[in-house]
């Protein structure tokens, strides 16, 4: 059989010839009609397309209207989101649009001389941090235990205590380089050192000496201010330079007084000289160790908490003769600055 067309199928489906229903079928059906029938409410409503399908004709229109509202609303929201704020719009209208695509930040390079000076200063600071120039009785470290282990030899301390010299060597000197990681000494670290010294005195059964140790160390402990601030405030030789540029080595002397002695090394022409080893030696105490340091970029070295007295300042430039300045009087309660003038270079 060939494939039938729609028309042929329609013709076949529409063919009649059905037999008549058997007689009595209607009667049988009627006999089964129940006595009580319940008709749906919708069946009793007026006929017609609009009645059969409430709002049937209007439904497409409502759908179209709702779609239009949704599209308009979405467009309004998108417009609000894409439109810049009122202030920005006003700025754009008044001044146009400036689009910044790249921002280049230029940092001026240091000159070669500056870099060399900075490297030298850092090297000196690092070197001084590893090897204290003046062997101190106690070096303030971040770790108090490490500090207590660096007490001076027992023999010397015993000898001093027995002689009644209540010099609190345990906490009298400390070298703290500026610009290193341990830029700030802390009060508790100093206290740990003092406690170590006092403990040693207790072991020697000398309570009086213990009190002296604590009394002598008290100013040093209370003087544990941030080193950077101290340097900036006391660096009289180069007040205008920053702390990093100055980078002097500060020697904290846990002496009874707090005087600061600043030594500035200059050439004959008055130019500061960096990297010159300098020392400060007491002329009154024969056994005192000299305070030593190296001038910073500004040619200065600050010795903090120097006990009052008379001193000798010496500068030993490499390749040149030493320059000595004496006597230097350090009165109590005053900070002093002294200049060491190097001799002019010989032709």
């Amino acid at each position: 059989m060939k494939k039938l067309s729609d028309k042929e199928i329609t013709r076949l489906l529409a063919q009649r010839g059905m037999p008549e229903p058997p007689p009595g079928l209607a009667r049988q059906i009627k006999a089964e009609i129940p006595g009580q029938l319940e008709v749906g409410g919708g069946a009793l409503e007026p006929t017609g397309r609009s009645g059969a399908m409430p709002f049937g004709g209007l439904r497409p229109l409502w759908m179209i209207a709702a779609s239009l509202l949704v599209v308009i609303g979405a467009g309004f929201v998108a417009l609000r989101l894409l439109t810049p704020p009122a202030e920005l719009s006003r700025e754009i209208a008044l001044g146009g649009v400036t689009r910044i695509t790249d921002v280049v930040v230029t940092v001026p390079e240091r000159s070669t001389v500056e870099r060399q000076k900075l490297a030298m200063a850092e090297n000196r600071v690092a070197k001084a941090a590893v090897q204290p120039v003046n062997p101190p009785a106690v070096t303030l470290k971040a770790d108090a235990r490490a500090a207590s282990l660096q007490l001076e030899p027992k023999a010397k301390a015993e000898e001093r205590l027995e002689l009644g010299k209540a010099e609190p060597r345990a906490a009298d000197q400390a070298a703290v380089p500026v610009g290193t990681s341990a830029r700030e000494t802390r009060a508790e670290e100093a206290e740990a050192v003092v406690s170590a010294a006092a403990q040693y005195a207790d072991e020697r059964k000398a309570p009086a000496e213990t009190d002296k140790v604590r009394a002598a160390a008290a100013p040093a402990v209370s003087a544990t201010v941030p080193i950077r601030e101290a340097v900036v405030a006391q660096d009289m030789g180069s007040p205008a330079k920053g702390a990093r540029e100055a980078a002097p080595k500060v020697l904290l002397a846990a002496a009874p007084a707090r005087e600061t002695v600043t030594l500035v090394v200059r050439t004959a022409a008055g130019v500061t000289v960096a990297g010159v080893p300098v020392s400060l030696l007491s002329l009154e105490k024969k056994d005192a160790k000299p305070l030593e340091g190296i001038t910073g970029a500004d040619g200065a070295v600050a010795f903090a908490a120097v006990p009052p007295g008379r001193y000798r300042a010496t500068a030993r430039p490499s390749g040149g003769s030493a320059v000595v300045l004496e006597p230097i009087d350090v009165p109590a309660g005053q900070s002093r600055t002294f200049e060491l003038r190097l001799p002019p270079a010989l032709p």
Partner: peptide, 19 residues
Amino acid sequence: TQETYRRAWAALGSFDGRA
């Protein structure tokens, strides 16, 4: 056919009149 009318009488309450 008889079955159809029996079901129709029983479900006449659901006839909504659409058709």
